[in-house]
């Protein structure tokens, strides 16, 4: 592996574990969703077709949420690196921009998967159950794809943004809709047609469904299709992130 890839990966990991408060902060929203929605709706709904309780249905969606948000934040980190100057230090080193971008992406993806795992472990306390080994591996591979895709997307966005002002808008008008319209919080099978149509063009849907398949053994979309679509999306995002990061000027 190139020295830049593991250096930037290591940096992200060190920074992640160093700021305990940020770990807790980024877990708070998903946990909040899990507890309020899970317990709030558990008594009034079971999932049609499968008979799973709502909270069991919801857990993969919340894991997706944690992975999604951590990934995007991690990619957008580059804006801070630019503002506080550290980006120059990496760009002036005798390493390629691609290896910097890959290191950053893998670092972000790793922390996102750790967040997902923490949610998984916490969910065991509220009635979730650990999937089979195969199911776990399936869920993990979808988490990997989601995290790489969305860290790359974050890097792509950060490469085009001059400062932090656009950040809130990106979150409100891109990332939030991607999350809410992905089937993470509601079953696709009985959803209204419009919602369903939107969900099917939303790449995150295939991630949620893939993770759900790993956990429950059933999903609204064939897991092979989910895997193919998400892999395609991931490749596009990595190239987009790499392309825009290469064009970035300091």
């Amino acid at each position: 592996m190139s020295s830049a890839v593991d250096t930037l990966w290591l940096r992200t990991i060190i920074r992640y574990f160093r700021s305990k408060s940020r770990i807790i902060e980024s877990l708070a929203t998903p946990l909040f969703f899990l507890l309020i929605l899970g317990f709030g709706l558990n008594s009034v709904s079971t999932i049609p077709g499968t008979g799973h309780s709502f909270i069991i249905f919801l857990i993969p969606g919340i894991i997706t949420m944690a992975v999604l948000f951590t990934s995007v934040f991690s990619g957008i980190q580059i804006i801070w690196d630019r503002q506080f100057g550290f980006l120059k230090e990496t760009l002036i080193a005798p390493v390629s921009r691609n290896s910097i971008m890959i290191g950053q992406t893998l670092g972000g993806a790793t922390t996102a998967i750790i967040e997902g795992m923490i949610i998984l472990v916490l969910s065991l306390f509220i009635g979730g159950s650990f999937p089979s080994v195969l199911g776990f591996l399936i869920a993990i591979s979808f988490m990997v794809l989601i995290s790489i895709s969305f860290t790359s997307l974050g890097i792509a966005i950060a490469s085009r943004m001059e400062d932090m002002y656009g950040f809130q808008m990106i979150m409100n008008f891109l990332i939030m809709p991607i999350f809410f319209l992905s089937g993470a919080l509601f079953p696709l099978t009985n959803a209204p047609t419009v919602l369903k149509a939107i969900a099917y063009v939303n790449p995150l849907t295939y991630g949620v469904e893939g993770i759900r398949y790993g956990f429950l053994g059933v999903s609204a979309i064939n897991p092979l299709i989910s895997f193919a679509v998400l892999t395609g999306f991931c490749i596009i995002m990595v190239f987009l992130g790499g392309y825009l990061f290469n064009k970035l000027k300091v």
Binding site: L10, S19, I92, V95
Partner: peptide, 26 residues
């Protein structure tokens, strides 16, 4: 190069900033 504006990683220690630089330069 020592830039006019700082280019250190504030969240890392002095040692880590140096060490990462060394890694980047092989």
């Amino acid at each position: 190069m020592v830039f006019q504006d700082p280019t250190l990683d504030d969240e890392l220690t002095a040692y880590e900033n140096m060490d990462f630089h060394g890694r980047l330069y092989g």
